[in-house]
Amino acid sequence: MWEKMIAYIMTHGDALLVQIGTHLWISLAALAAAILIGAPCGYLAADSPGIEKWISAPFHVLRVIPSLAILVLLIPIAGTGALPAVIALTILAVPPVLLNTIVGFRDVPPFMTESAAGIGMTDREILWKVRIPLALPMIFAGIRTALVEVIASAALAARIGAGGLGEVIFTGLGLNRMDLLLLGGTLVAALSLLCGGLFDALTRRLMPYRQL
């Protein structure tokens, strides 16, 4: 088994690197899109209960829907390939970012914003110097959840022709090759744990003032 795995890495090393690259690229693109959509919407929703009612209910439902269903359901609409995969993964990644952003801004204690206003900060200063820094740990926790979910689902995206490390696993399943299954599984797991760890380090670096 080990010899077979090492032999595969030797012969298909370049292909593996491309697959790792694709996997990362798809995941990070979807995550970036989800942050760009989720964080501003979350901010708006946190400020007005009217919008929040409309935004948060459908996204709570969206969180419950199995990721495979979303991925597969998008094919008739968007076709196969990398772009539909990014779209599907973005849909999966928005809810955790958005819902955590709402909670993050909600949980900023009123006395903080009031005292900021009291020392003469403008609304813009209060937003950038008080509310965002205090909401950020919660938002980052949401981004981390989204990151792990996206990397996991990107493995499934190989099924809709998006490439990535899922290809190794699905090939292994198709050919009943244990070495490919073990290799693909380990690489995807390692990628997920590594990205999670790096993200934790980034969070600690950016926000030494508050640990979640």
Binding site: V148, A152, A155, L173, M178, L181, G184, G185, V188
Partner: peptide, 17 residues
Amino acid sequence: AVVYSIPSLALFAILIP
């Protein structure tokens, strides 16, 4: 927590052997 963050397809693949 570590187990939970392993993608399911990967965990299935690792368990099959």
